[in-house]
Each structure stands twice: as structure tokens, then as C-alpha cells.
């Protein structure tokens, strides 16, 4: 029920972005992106989350430059073991006389590796299974969703444990284990979204243009499911990081001397009372990054999925 038009008139780049009559595909897309960005930046927590995630990426990329010491080779074992945080070792040293800050910085690469790999594997599987099941319906739906239910029934860490036990410990196997346990929720979300759009007139309209089923699924259904799945994946990132760290903590993820955060917490456990920083510093890193992904996910949800925001 709009009566009179909005009062403020933007100028310059903003006017170009917000133009009601975009002149090209790119301008239309950028304008859309800009609107999303504007509503995203209105949420300060989301911006903090984005900042943390960007920081993680930058640190991981520039680890060699940023880290003051080697993450693997320790210092003098007689004089530099388990030193508290100081000017030389900002976050202290561990039992091998290694600088904890350097190890955390290099460990960010492993964390990022896990996060990226899991999302690259799990998201497409979930999206495909969900949209195909939802769009085709019938027995395809039944079969695919029962398979999804089976995967969903396994506790993530336990399945990952079994998987790693079978394939042998190592970060890659941990990633695969996490990925195959994390796609079912995405499949369910994608299916629910697909069920909502499959009977709409705009899908009927492309059908009537003679579009093939794959064309409808990839070109018309998936773009509508993508945003809610992306939100869910981002929100799940914290859990994935924690699972990876948990596996590392149990000695089933990254193997020593690799500076994986979970494994670092595990070694620090022996000195928890007297040298708390050995376990606390990587723990803090896990906490901050998990929080960052959660905040980012919340912010993205407000922008991409306004229905679920409340």
C-alpha cells in the first residue's frame, strides 16, 4: 500500500546501483548485490562476523609472513619450554618450546582447508539430492530421502570416528568424514524449498516453454534454494570447525607436528593447571572463528532468507 514515493534521492554511484532501470545485466546484478550489502551492514554483529572470517582468510594466506617463528621447529628445550606470554612470545610457548602464536597462525590454514573442503563437498551433494527429490517426487523422493534419513541418524562425531578408524587418521579423511555427515540437513532444506516452488506458476511457465527437467532444476529451482542452504552452511561452519578440532583432540585428525588447533588443545591438556595458555590460546582461536561464522550466518540469513529471520 504505497502512497507517495520515498523521499530521499540518492546520487552518484549509489544512484547507478539503485537505478530502477538498469542498463545491463551487470548493473542489475550489482544493484541487487548492493541492496543486500546495505541490509547486511545494518547489522553490526554480522559485520563483526564477516571481519573475523576475512581475518581468518588473510591470516591463512599470509601465514609465512605473519608468523614470527617456525610452527614446527621449537626453540631451546631447556630454556624456552612452556614460557608464559611475554614480549618475545606473545602467546607463550608449548612443551616443545614452539611459539604458540606462530602455530595458531599456521593452524588457521588447516581450519580454512577443512571449512572450504567440507562446504565444497557437502553443499552440492545436499542441494542436488534435495532439489531432485523435491522436484521429481514419487519414488525418487522416497528413496533419496530415506538415504538422507540414514545419514542423518548417525551422530556426526561417531561416524567420523568410525570413518577415520577405517581409513586411518589424517586431516583429509577427517574432512571426508565430516562432509558425508553434514550434507543431509542441506538436502532437507533444499527439498522443503523445492516443494514450495515446484507448483508455482513460474515453474509451470518454463515447463510450457519446453524446458527439460535438468534445465528447470539447475536454472530455476536451485537458485531459489541456494540462499537458504548457504545460510545453513555458514551457520554449520562453527560445528564443523569444532568437529575437526574434536577429531584433532582425539588424535584422529591432523597428525603431529601439524599445528591443528584441536590437537594443540589436546597437548595443552597436560599442563592445564600451571601453564593454562598452552591449551587456552588455541581454544580461544577456535572460539573466535566459530563465533565469527555464526555471526556471519545470522547476518546472511537476515539478508538472504527474510522469512526465517524471525
Amino acid at each position: 500500500m504505497a502512497g507517495s514515493p520515498a523521499l530521499s534521492q540518492p546520487t552518484g554511484l549509489r544512484a547507478w546501483l539503485l537505478s530502477p532501470e538498469p542498463a545491463s545485466r551487470w548493473q542489475a546484478r550489482l544493484g541487487r548485490f548492493y541492496l543486500g550489502w546495505r541490509s547486511f551492514t545494518r547489522n553490526p554483529l554480522a559485520v563483526i562476523g564477516l571481519g573475523i572470517v576475512v581475518l581468518l582468510i588473510v591470516v591463512a594466506l599470509l601465514a609465512d609472513v605473519l608468523a614470527p617463528y617456525s610452527p614446527v621447529v621449537g626453540g631451546d628445550l631447556r630454556t624456552q619450554r612452556l614460557l608464559p606470554p611475554s614480549e618475545t612470545f606473545w602467546l607463550g610457548t608449548d612443551d616443545q618450546a614452539r611459539d604458540i602464536l606462530s602455530r595458531i597462525i599456521h593452524g588457521s590454514r588447516i581450519t580454512l582447508f577443512v571449512v572450504v573442503l567440507v562446504s565444497i563437498i557437502a553443499t552440492p551433494i545436499g542441494l542436488l539430492v534435495g532439489t531432485i527429490a523435491g522436484y521429481l517426487g514419487g519414488w525418487v523422493d522416497t528413496v533419496l530421502m530415506r538415504i538422507t534419513d540414514i545419514f542423518l541418524a548417525f551422530p556426526r562425531l561417531v561416524l567420523a570416528l568410525a570413518f577415520v578408524a577405517a581409513l586411518g587418521p589424517g586431516i583429509e579423511n577427517a574432512v571426508i568424514a565430516i562432509a558425508i555427515t553434514s550434507w543431509p540437513p542441506y538436502a532437507r532444506i533444499a527439498r522443503a524449498e523445492t516443494l514450495m516452488v515446484r507448483n508455482t506458476d513460474f515453474i509451470a511457465a518454463v515447463k510450457l516453454q519446453g524446458a527439460s527437467t535438468p534445465r528447470i532444476i539447475f536454472g530455476h529451482v536451485i537458485p531459489l534454494c541456494l540462499s537458504s542452504v548457504i545460510v545453513r552452511v555458514t551457520l554449520d561452519m562453527a560445528g564443523i570447525i569444532l568437529t575437526a578440532a574434536g577429531l584433532g583432540f582425539l588424535g584422529l585428525g591432523a597428525q603431529p607436528p601439524s599445528p591443528e588447533w584441536g590437537a594443540m588443545v589436546a597437548t595443552g591438556r597436560n599442563y592445564l593447571i600451571d601453564q593454562w595458555w598452552v591449551a587456552a590460546m588455541p581454544g580461544l582461536a577456535i572460539f573466535v572463528v566459530s563465533l565469527g561464522f555464526n555471526l556471519l550466518g545470522d547476518g546472511l540469513r537476515d539478508v538472504l532468507d527474510p522469512k526465517a529471520a524471525k
Binding site: P22, R25, A28, T200, D201, F202, A204, A205, V206, Q209, G210, A211, S212, R215, G219, H220, P223, L224
Partner: peptide
């Protein structure tokens, strides 16, 4: 309800041409 909410007019109109 009959236009895809995430597609521009251009995309909506080019789809039948691309299909055929």
C-alpha cells in the same frame, strides 16, 4: 507468481529462446 523472482526480464525472455 508467474515470473521467477530472481530472474531479470531479460533472463525470463531469453529462456524460451535458449530452450528452442
Amino acid at each position: 507468481a508467474s515470473l521467477h523472482p530472481r530472474h531479470t526480464v531479460d533472463r525470463t525472455l531469453s529462456e524460451p529462446l535458449a530452450i528452442h
